[in-house]
């Protein structure tokens, strides 16, 4: 049986998450098709055909899919689901929005945030903010799951899949009004090899500028704790943690972050963790590879000079 992966994209470019979900699909084993539902998304389709090991790219290119609304996208997926035993999407805001609808319409349970494939019907997923890992066997005839992309290495771009057009389209009940996306030249949080994150200790939005400089110097992304987002220092999409972004970069630098379990849930799989905090009792030091008890306003400028 075959596996269907739902592509993650913004109509202009394919997100790296998709290449990671395809890697998860290959760990399950079987033919892998990828669905690109969007509008005027030919560049996305082209990038998807190059993903290593993909058999075919199914394309639903229509204005009604421009905003990737959950209701009509899930109907589209259910319409082609009979050909597939597994349906996978990245555990992004889009995947989390849409895939449970697919599950409910197919009358099967969903597995969320899968981090490991044990066998084609058994998977590992974190529960309680990553305080425990559950190994779950699906008893349903179809396995529908969101995949935590930070747990898988992206497949290469040496494929040559064929494209197949899907003509059947359906309307959404929702209407798009507007969107305000954070404009940034930095890499995306989920795709960056270095992440520099700030917490309440930064004290203000302006003070985040020194972390931005550090992130830029290291070619990394900027992140934040919930406390920093709640305080309005940075926009919501920078939040790393249980209910924000889950990241696992080569280097994670936590600055002025105490390390609540909800934050650790979003970054503890990073390869190297650095913590800079003036409180020696901060829980972040318990999981940091390198800890520095220091005033961040002295340490970060020094760091900027030395790296």
């Amino acid at each position: 049986m075959a596996i269907l992966v739902i592509a993650e994209h913004d109509n202009a470019s394919l997100k790296l998450d998709t290449a990671k979900v395809v890697a998860c699909a290959q760990a399950i084993g079987g033919d892998v098709d990828v669905l690109v539902a969007g509008h005027e998304c030919s560049a996305v389709v082209e990038a998807t055909t190059k993903l290593s090991g993909v058999r075919s790219v199914l394309v639903a290119d229509a204005a009604v899919y421009a905003n990737a609304f959950a209701d009509n996208t899930s109907e589209l997926i259910v319409g082609i689901a009979s050909d597939y035993e597994h349906i996978l999407a990245a555990a992004t805001s889009h995947g989390k929005d849409m895939l449970p609808r697919v599950s409910a319409l197919l009358d099967v349970a969903q597995l969320s945030e899968v981090v490991e494939v044990v066998s084609p019907d058994t998977f590992v997923r974190p529960i309680y903010a990553g305080s425990a890992l559950a190994t779950v066997q699906s008893l349903d005839d179809k396995k529908v799951m969101t995949v935590r992309s930070s747990a898988f290495d992206a497949v290469a771009n040496d494929g040559a899949a064929v494209t197949v057009s899907i003509e059947k389209i359906s309307d959404s009940l929702s209407q798009f009004v507007s969107q305000s996306l954070t404009e940034s030249e930095r890499p995306e949080l989920g795709a960056a090899s270095v992440v520099v994150s700030g917490g309440r200790g930064l004290g203000s939005s302006d003070n985040f500028a020194i972390l931005e400089q550090l992130a830029d110097k290291l070619g990394g992304a900027l992140g934040a704790s919930r406390a920093a987002v709640d305080a309005g220092f940075v926009p919501n999409d920078l939040q790393v943690g249980q209910t924000g972004k889950i990241v696992a970069p080569d280097l994670y630098i936590a600055v002025g972050i105490s390390g609540a379990i909800q934050h650790l849930a979003g970054m503890k799989d990073s390869k190297v963790i650095v913590a800079i905090n003036k409180d020696p009792e901060a829980p972040i030091f318990q999981i940091a590879d390198y800890g520095l008890e220091a005033d961040l306003f002295e340490a970060v400028p020094q760091l900027l000079e030395l790296v």
Binding site: T135, L139, I287
Partner: peptide
């Protein structure tokens, strides 16, 4: 019945590092 939880395990402990 949709799923069976086969086991629940603690995550790999991250070894504490060094203070510099």
């Amino acid at each position: 019945s949709h799923q069976k939880v086969l086991k629940v395990t603690p995550p790999a402990e991250r070894k504490g590092g060094v203070m510099l």
